[in-house]
């Protein structure tokens, strides 16, 4: 199985300041599949993607991408590895002073010596895929959130990567753009033979396209399996998250002293 895994995370711990984000988690992302990583907000899902991309270094454990430990790579090797992966940021992260066309062309202009006419055909092709070829002269400020994300998607695939990481692709989208994105992710994965990692807390949309899912909560992997397996799971924490129950192992209240203590003790702040 290990030859099949594009990304392997082994015993990774990561802390931000005193707060532990991950405690010895293990994940495996198989090649050519859509893997979803679910978890509550603030659970460090974006951090996980940054660990995979080598932007952050874990306190302990290994992050293996394309069979090599990301943190032992030299800067040129890390950059070479990053060219083989695309990342779709939650906000799109388009460069604000470039229009749609130039944003998508940006990685090509930086990394290749293609002629302007070649760049034009590649960019128009990718924009056609996301359905925004006609919007190529707009600037990021003129785009809706969903359109910005599709442009960012076109940019993420312009170098034909082997893997794409989606950071909260469905957050804050209306049902139509959500549907468009779901379809795009699935189509891209099938037609380009990509490996996809989706980080999300939108259970239904993610479950509809993911081949396998991980559920992360409290810095640990609490559930793993196919969408159907997780949805049917009887494990309390998994069931709470998958069905959106307000109370369960993950408490509604921010952890602290009991309410009664605060009421009876007026000096506490």
């Amino acid at each position: 199985m290990s030859t099949e895994a594009l990304v392997q995370i082994r015993g990774v711990s990561y802390a931000r300041g005193a707060r532990a984000i991950f405690e010895a988690i293990d994940l495996e992302i198989p090649r050519g599949k859509i893997t979803a990583i679910l978890g509550p907000s603030g659970g460090g899902k974006t951090t996980l993607l940054r660990l995979i991309g080598g932007q952050l270094t874990p306190a302990s454990g290994q992050v293996m991408i394309f069979g090599r430990d990301v943190n032992t790579l030299s800067t040129p090797a890390l950059y070479a590895a990053r060219k083989r992966m695309g990342m779709l940021f939650q906000s799109g992260a388009l460069l604000t002073d470039l229009d749609v066309f130039d944003n998508v062309a940006f990685p090509l202009r930086e990394h290749t010596t293609l002629s302007e006419s070649m760049i034009r055909s590649v960019v128009l092709m990718k924009l056609e895929v996301v359905g925004l070829r006609a919007a190529r002269h707009l600037f990021p400020r003129e785009l809706s959130g969903g359109m910005a994300r599709r442009v960012a998607l076109a940019r993420a695939i312009v170098l034909d990567p082997e893997m794409i990481m989606y950071d909260e692709p469905f957050a804050g989208q209306d049902p139509i753009s959500m549907g468009i994105l779901v379809r795009l992710i699935r189509e891209l994965n099938e037609t380009l033979g990509l490996t996809s990692i989706i980080v999300s807390h939108d259970v239904t949309e993610t479950a509809s396209i993911a081949d396998q899912m991980y559920l992360i909560a409290g810095g640990k992997v609490v559930g793993h399996g196919s969408s159907a397996e997780l949805l049917a799971s009887q494990q309390a924490g998994v069931a709470q998250f998958m069905h959106g129950n307000p109370d369960g192992p993950m408490p509604f209240h921010y952890p602290g002293a009991p309410y009664l203590d605060d009421l009876l003790n007026p000096t506490s702040t």
Partner: peptide, 22 residues
């Protein structure tokens, strides 16, 4: 600062472009 806040610098890094040089 806004490029940092809107993740543009991170996006550059993930596109294998060094934001310090670029």
């Amino acid at each position: 600062g806004l490029m940092r806040a809107t993740e543009q610098l991170s996006a550059l890094e993930m596109m294998a472009i060094d934001p310090l040089s670029r």
